[in-house]
């Protein structure tokens, strides 16, 4: 039987790949996909805890995390499309009008 640690380490690796994507990539949509990766890894660890505790509460948490992730995806992509319409780019280094 696979111990709980394996699932947690897997989710830690997924989370770190997501962090690397957010830090390294400059394309807003890739950054967006990396955020989805991080959300998925946290969901995986929640499900693993729920399964090993024999308590379905973790699955309810994942259900609500998915709801918020769907809302975040819709609003985030709308923001990216609005940005692209105004600046003709999705490179987040060129979207810096809040910097001074």
């Amino acid at each position: 039987m696979i111990p709980l640690d394996y699932y947690l380490v897997l989710s830690a690796f997924m989370f770190c790949v997501g962090v690397l994507g957010v830090v390294v990539r400059r394309n807003a949509i890739i950054v967006f996909m990396s955020i989805e990766l991080m959300l998925n890894s946290v969901n995986l660890s929640l499900i693993a805890f729920s399964s090993f505790l024999g308590d379905p509460t973790g699955q309810m948490l994942v259900f609500f995390v998915m709801t918020v992730a769907a809302a975040e995806a819709a609003v985030g992509l709308a923001i990216i499309i609005a940005l692209f319409r105004n600046k003709q780019t999705v490179n987040i280094d060129e979207i810096n009008i809040l910097k001074w």
């Binding site: 967006f32 989805e36 992730a69 769907a70 995806a73 992509l77 499309i81 692209f84």
Partner: peptide, 14 residues
């Protein structure tokens, strides 16, 4: 849902 939305985002912004 989310993946199709992301592909739409890719197609609309590149």
């Amino acid at each position: 849902g989310i993946l199709v939305l992301l592909l739409f985002g890719v197609m609309l912004t590149t």
